[in-house]
Computed example of a mutant assay.
Amino acid sequence: MATYAPNLPETMKAIHWTKIGKPAEILALDKHQPLPTLTGTNILVKVHASALNPVDWKLMKGGVPRFLMPKVKTPGLDISGVVVGLGPKAGKSNKPGVQKFAIGDRVMAMLDFSKSGGLQEYTLVDETILVKTPAEWDALAAAAFPLVGTTVYESLVIRGGIKKGDKVLVNGASGGTGSVAVQLATALGAAVVGVCSTPNVELVKKLGAAEVVDYTAAKVHEQYSNRDFDIILDTVGSDELYATSGTLLKPSGQYIQIAGADSAMDSPFHLLYSGLQILHKKLYGLLTRGAGYQLFTTFPNGANLATAAHILVRVNATPTVAATFEFSLDQVLEAYKQSQSGRARGKLVVTLQ
């Protein structure tokens, strides 16, 4: 039997879309959507904050077939909030890394893109991808972290094999993902070179970067041409950086790209074309310097999220929040407008509490 906190409402506010297009054209606010029904190992979370990610508005373009997503799709892959309901099978798993939850626990999660998201007052989260929020973080920091934290951990630790003393280049070091990458790599003992624009140089230094390259004033490959780096983490998707990576990476180095072209999800054709480009880069990297190129999609993983958060908390680091927005249609549309500009210094967070 499911367990609920007392006095829950029957309906909630939710922002959603039902057809492809631009956020301003397709997003709508439903003020009387029924609360989700608890089943299985799901946890019902009252959402306090939800962070935006570029993948949200890229999915709205229609590159991913609609049958892979709900008919009514609520965006927002990052949430923080409090547990208000436990599914009938919650807490009975013996899987490693799955935490136990109780009504009232502060939690955070990266949600599955194929299910409803965080821009609604209550959302369902499977217990395998939900983790308790560190006591040191408020709701904004917790909402800003899950997707980028999981992505950066998989990039640097699992795929990059980062170790103390490595030299790591982070392209897009002031953005939502890059700012976490700088902090996590530094916390793990790496020397970080961050790439950003002039207004963000001091921010990236404060995040822990040993050196910063202002890409408006200098080229990375002109400053570092002796195969200095063990890992290049490209959070932007720069063709120029990849083309010059042969002079930047050590022979055993890893070029890890986590962002494709903005046009990749414009249509299924664009998605296929982007896939072919990735395959070409993988083959080129394999032939020229070993298996040194990776582009991947991060999926929710509670164990990785909890570990990544622990690393940052251990060194008193927190995710960078660029701006906050109220939970209204106008404010959410403004947030997406800023997200699409690509100029945010950190994460954009919508507050629901």
Score class of each variant (00 low, 15 high):
residue 213 V to W: 07
residue 316 N to A: 15
residue 15 I to Y: 02
residue 231 I to S: 05
residue 48 H to S: 04
residue 149 G to D: 07
residue 315 V to R: 15
residue 297 T to R: 10
residue 345 R to P: 00
residue 108 M to V: 04
residue 100 K to D: 14
residue 215 Y to N: 09
residue 160 G to C: 03
residue 252 S to P: 01
residue 110 M to N: 09
residue 263 S to R: 08
residue 289 R to C: 08
residue 179 S to L: 06
residue 140 L to H: 08
residue 234 D to W: 15
residue 289 R to H: 14
residue 85 G to N: 09
residue 61 K to S: 11
residue 229 F to C: 10
residue 249 L to Q: 00
residue 42 N to F: 00
residue 163 K to M: 14
residue 70 P to I: 10
residue 84 V to M: 07
residue 65 P to M: 10
residue 129 I to K: 12
residue 298 T to R: 02
residue 330 D to R: 15
residue 311 I to P: 03
residue 196 C to G: 01
residue 321 V to D: 02
residue 249 L to I: 01
residue 121 E to H: 14
residue 85 G to E: 08
residue 70 P to F: 11
residue 25 E to V: 11
residue 145 F to S: 05
residue 340 Q to F: 02
residue 268 P to Q: 14
residue 197 S to K: 03
residue 223 Q to I: 12
residue 124 L to V: 13
residue 231 I to Y: 03
residue 204 V to F: 07
residue 295 L to W: 05
residue 109 A to Y: 02
residue 271 L to V: 11
residue 236 V to A: 12
residue 60 M to D: 08
residue 262 D to V: 05
residue 249 L to N: 01
residue 210 A to P: 08
residue 62 G to F: 11
residue 316 N to Y: 08
residue 127 E to P: 01
residue 305 L to Y: 05
residue 352 L to I: 03
residue 118 G to I: 13
residue 176 G to P: 04
residue 268 P to R: 13
residue 28 A to P: 12
residue 143 A to Q: 13
residue 43 I to P: 01
residue 332 V to H: 12
residue 76 G to V: 09
residue 173 A to H: 05
residue 202 E to G: 05
residue 309 A to S: 08
residue 250 K to Y: 00
residue 110 M to L: 07
residue 152 V to L: 08
residue 201 V to H: 08
residue 14 A to L: 06
residue 110 M to Q: 13
residue 59 L to F: 10
residue 260 G to C: 02
residue 56 D to W: 00
residue 9 P to M: 04
residue 8 L to C: 15
residue 181 A to F: 00
residue 125 V to Q: 13
residue 108 M to W: 03
residue 77 L to N: 02
residue 46 K to P: 03
residue 192 V to A: 07
residue 344 A to Q: 13
residue 209 A to N: 03
residue 309 A to V: 05
residue 242 Y to K: 06
residue 5 A to N: 14
residue 301 N to V: 05
residue 327 F to E: 12
residue 314 R to P: 04
residue 72 V to Q: 15
residue 245 S to N: 08
residue 349 V to L: 10
residue 173 A to N: 04
residue 19 K to H: 06
residue 248 L to N: 02
residue 256 I to R: 01
residue 86 L to A: 07
residue 301 N to A: 09
residue 270 H to F: 09
residue 24 A to D: 13
residue 280 H to K: 09
residue 341 S to P: 10
residue 102 A to Q: 14
residue 208 G to V: 11
residue 256 I to V: 06
residue 4 Y to K: 12
residue 30 D to V: 15
residue 21 G to H: 06
residue 317 A to N: 05
residue 259 A to I: 00
residue 338 Q to H: 06
residue 198 T to D: 13
residue 258 I to N: 00
residue 23 P to A: 11
residue 83 V to F: 12
residue 235 T to A: 14
residue 78 D to C: 03
residue 190 A to I: 10
residue 224 Y to V: 11
residue 223 Q to M: 14
residue 41 T to H: 14
residue 117 G to V: 06
residue 316 N to M: 10
residue 347 K to T: 00
residue 248 L to Y: 00
residue 192 V to T: 04
residue 263 S to P: 10
residue 191 A to W: 03
residue 71 K to N: 09
